[in-house]
């Protein structure tokens, strides 16, 4: 039983890798479908903009409060700008937003492709000589690889803004002072390494979601199960790969 589950896990992993290889090849060897990519980007953006702004803002505010509270003992309340901006851009923005948006977008992709699969639309594509990877996977992959970093960047900005509100309204630190500290400490490298990780997350989520959609079987029920599995697997993949990618970007 456990062995069977393990074997299925390995198989699933293999399928995702194969799909990934095909997709990468397609992305680099065929003309991008610009209208479809932009359509997907708008869809992903509009699906996620609210979560991104709210999450960014509130995480920034919490960071500011927590920092003020823990650092008060050291009399270092003044460094809130640094702490908020660096933790937001290096870690919290990329990881949290990728988890939330990845779940949202991944579920949407699996539900859509899964429905197409159980209603034979994917077979219909193939029967008319169209390649499902080219038609469905690569536009979504490109769109998400572009959208996710943008969404994370927006969340980062909202986070810094959240810190600003708390500093100014609750901690008696002037907004100007806070902002000076934000920009004094924040390096291009912080933002870059954070956004760099999201490129990988976007690829992982899209591939998991597309693979599960293509495998969905047996009506609405099967599509539902595939969607749940996408959300869970995306989250785990993001959390684990985040650790290794963080190490990697520290070496670079």
């Amino acid at each position: 039983m456990a062995l069977e589950k393990f074997a299925r896990g390995i198989e699933e992993f293999g399928e995702i890798i194969i799909l990934g290889a095909k997709t990468v090849k397609t992305v680099f060897t065929t003309k991008p479908d610009i209208p479809q990519i932009s359509y997907q980007m708008v869809l992903m953006g509009s699906q996620s903009m609210n979560i991104v702004m709210v999450t960014g803002l509130f995480v920034g505010m919490v960071l500011a409060i927590q920092t003020a509270y823990t650092l008060a003992a050291f009399g270092a309340k003044l460094y809130i700008g640094e702490v908020v901006s660096v933790s937001m851009t290096r870690e919290l923005g990329p990881a949290l937003i990728s988890l939330l948006v990845g779940g949202r977008v991944g579920a949407g992709i699996t539900a859509e492709l899964g429905t197409m699969n159980v209603t034979e639309q994917i077979d219909a594509l193939r029967s008319m000589g169209a390649d499902p990877v080219k038609k469905l996977v690569s536009p979504r992959l490109i769109a998400f690889v572009i959208s996710l970093p943008i969404l994370v960047l927006i969340a980062n900005a909202m986070g810094v803004l959240g810190g600003y509100f708390i500093s100014a309204l609750e901690l008696d630190i002037s907004g100007k002072f806070y902002m000076n500290h934000v920009f004094r400490m924040l390096k291009f490298n912080d933002v870059f390494s954070g956004l760099g990780k999201t490129l990988f997350f976007a690829v992982f989520v899209t591939l998991i979601a597309c693979r599960n959609g293509f495998k969905a079987q047996g009506g609405a029920d099967g599509v539902g199960r595939a969607t749940t599995s996408t959300v869970v697997l995306s989250a785990i993949t993001i959390l684990i790969s985040n650790f290794f990618l963080t190490k990697l970007f520290l070496i670079l």
């Binding site: 034979e120 639309q121 219909a124 008319m128």
Partner: peptide
């Protein structure tokens, strides 16, 4: 082979994301 043979699916298998016109134009 698929240029030579077309298949009319039992349940239609129409693309929901496309209009009737675009569906028929697809091939």
């Amino acid at each position: 082979i698929r240029r030579k043979i077309s298949y009319m699916f039992q349940w239609g298998a129409l693309f929901d994301s496309m209009t009737v016109f675009d569906n028929v134009a697809f091939p």
